[in-house]
Write a protein that binds this DNA or RNA. Structure first.
Ligand SMILES: [Mn+2]
Ligand SMILES: [Mn+2]
Ligand SMILES: [Zn+2]
Ligand SMILES: [Zn+2]
Lengths: 142, 142
DNA sequence: GCATATAGTTAGACTTTGTCTAATAAATAG
DNA sequence: CTATTTATTAGACAAAGTCTAACTATATGC
């Protein structure tokens, strides 16, 4: 699953191809949700996606939005970003990068991986594998 | 508010002094909660604290546990750690350090600040101040 | 001490995010 | 077309956390 160069926004055929590449059956609901996510590199909550996808009929149920986002995350198509205790953000940019979180506005901004380096990650106890290293810079606007 | 050398566990008088140092009125409930938190450097959820504090009477209400943890965090006496979308952890160690999070067990381990360095934090737009830099290494057990 | 004002606690209703269930619908295979 | 599997759905449910309005404890002024 190499990271291809992606041109935003992804159109419908590109989204269908992308789902296929990640072993995801391209149903109507999944395509709709993916089209919202892959309009540009962004960070959206389940609730934002639910609202956006239901702006025009036919509508998608809450259960399906959650199921789909969970599936996308499991398959590695999107990345969960946990910075706010009240909701998960889904990141359509899965290439390695870090985040700046504006506490006051609840907005996330990307920090390219080559701009910020982490040194000295500790050796892990036997049988443990690293899932990821998250760097979050918390800022407030004031 | 210098970080004094702290000897764990903090006993009742030490906890009362600590609350005073942080401008917090030392009520019975706050002392009870602080004694649980400052038994050792650790990461506890509101729910864990609620259960622990109510193991022996008199009991403390859920509202007070949440109010108190919010107050402690606001005053800088404890640090919130956001790694799990389902609950906030409260860290009795407020000195600068990072975290290793075991996804499978939901447990947090400290990584001393001098063991792990972050380079290249981006310059912030005008009027923004950094609240903190969190590094979370997510690991899974098997 | 007593009266008053202020600050803290409480039960329980409420909200939000997310999960689960059991039924239905759509897609796939033979 | 039929059988089987996979996906979607409404709505019930759960868990974390907030809010309200009443109550209690503490502090302050006399
Ligand atoms: Mn939301
Ligand atoms: Mn809990
Ligand atoms: Zn991102
Ligand atoms: Zn810690």
């Amino acid at each position: 699953m190499e990271d291809e160069i992606r041109q935003w926004p992804l159109d419908r055929p590109a989204v269908i191809k992308l789902l296929g590449d990640y072993g995801i059956q391209p149903t109507q609901q999944r395509i709709d949700i993916a089209q919202i996510l892959f309009a540009c590199p962004q960070h959206l909550s389940a609730d934002q996606i639910l609202k956006t996808v239901n702006e025009s009929p036919p509508s998608v149920s809450k259960a399906t939005v959650y199921n789909t986002l969970g599936l996308f995350a499991d398959k590695g198509l999107v990345r969960q970003v946990i910075v706010d205790p009240s909701r998960v953000f889904y990141d359509s940019n899965t290439s390695q990068h870090h985040h700046l979180y504006d506490i006051d506005h609840g907005t996330l901004t990307d920090i390219p991986a080559d701009q910020l380096t982490v040194n000295g990650a500790p050796q892990l106890p036997d049988g443990m594998i690293t899932e990821g290293i998250d760097v979050i810079i918390r800022v407030r606007s004031e």
